[in-house]
């Protein structure tokens, strides 16, 4: 007998009382959606900007290697997406469009279509996600309702810059992934 059959028949041999699968109610949040979202991102050590603030930040920063896949900032790139993801190792800045953001925790949803290469938002030194402010939802429940049965091979909720507190519980931003997250609401 294969281990598959072994495991499945072991389970089948156990008398298990049936238990119903509950429906999930549509919970809301107490506050206003955009204000809560901004607060959540800040709490996660990210920053929220509008388009003008972002443009002047970008002009002042002078990053040497930038990839923008955002429809709002098509000319910000000075690099093409490479064929081999390893070449992104010294990327300074990635600018990506998010599909929607979740107010209660600041999580922003991106799929293969936005990413181009899956490693992009992780390997870049700094990450910018551009979000339509009308795309904000209140909770994760509404987030998953929005995702519905979309079939992207990869999808990720990103809620802040890479962080760790593994040394004496002191928060350090920039563990392995992006050292900063800026969210541009347009």
């Amino acid at each position: 007998m294969s281990s598959r059959e072994n495991i499945l028949s072991a389970i089948q041999g156990i008398a298990l009382e049936s238990k119903p699968l509950p429906e999930i109610p549509d919970f809301g949040i107490p506050g206003e959606v955009e204000a809560t979202f901004v607060q959540s991102i800040q709490g996660n050590k990210g920053e929220v900007m509008d388009k003008a603030e972002f443009e002047s930040w970008l002009a002042a920063e002078k990053h040497s290697k930038i990839i923008s896949r955002s429809a709002s900032f098509p000319d910000a790139s000075n690099l093409y997406l490479p064929a081999d993801a390893h070449e992104l190792n010294d990327l300074d800045l990635a600018i990506l469009d998010g599909q929607f953001g979740v107010a209660e925790n600041g999580a922003i949803w991106l799929e293969d279509a936005e990413l181009g290469l899956r490693v992009l938002p992780f390997i870049t030194e700094h990450l910018v996600i551009v979000l339509d402010r009308n795309s904000l939802v209140a909770t994760m429940h509404q987030g998953y309702a929005r995702i519905g049965d979309a079939s992207s091979g990869f999808g990720v909720f990103i809620a802040g810059p890479s962080k760790t507190a593994d040394i004496e519980q002191s928060l350090v931003v920039g563990a392995h992934g992006a050292k900063s997250l800026r969210v541009v609401l347009v």
Partner: peptide, 26 residues
Amino acid sequence: LGIFLRLLARSATGQPVTNYNSHFRS
């Protein structure tokens, strides 16, 4: 996942969600 991602990080470390929540499908 809506239920479980809301509970997991809040219960674990008191943060509203983990910063990276990756969904691998293919």
